[in-house]
Design a protein around this nucleic acid. Structure first.
Length: 112
DNA sequence: CTGCTGACTGGTA
DNA sequence: GTACCAGCCAGCA
């Protein structure tokens, strides 16, 4: 199975997300070098079944859950298991569990 | 090459 | 709060 360079970068970024933290598709795209490729990131996540990749920690903007191949309930359960509360369609205290809060990402998004 | 798709996003109504 | 829209981009037919 061969992955494009972009896919490799995306996966390596997702692998870096610590337990109990989340990142948005847009964040992952930015860290992978393509700030506007959030949609493409979603496609890659959908196709990736690698267990070293915590896909459940990748969510949509604003703390929305996004998708999870039809197993959205499973995604919620996995997040809950890491201490992230998901009362409804959005996670609780999004700004607190969001990763990364680094200046690097902010600068990347500022170029938008 | 062209065209469509979608685990997206930000804007408007 | 919801609904719809245009822009976006990698992957695939």
């Amino acid at each position: 199975m061969k992955l494009s360079q972009f896919a490799v970068r995306v996966l390596s970024v997702v692998r870096r997300i610590p337990p109990g933290r989340v990142a948005t598709y847009g964040d992952v795209a930015a860290l992978a070098g393509r700030p506007r490729a959030s949609r493409a990131v979603g496609n890659i996540m959908r196709g990736c079944r690698d267990r070293g990749v915590p896909a459940h920690r990748v969510i949509a903007a604003g703390g929305a859950l996004g998708g999870f191949g039809g197993n959205l309930e499973l995604k919620k359960a996995l997040l809950r298991a890491e201490g992230i509360l998901v009362p409804g369609r959005r996670i609780r205290q999004f700004s607190r569990v969001r990763w990364p809060p680094s200046p690097r990402l902010r600068r990347a998004k500022a170029l938008r």
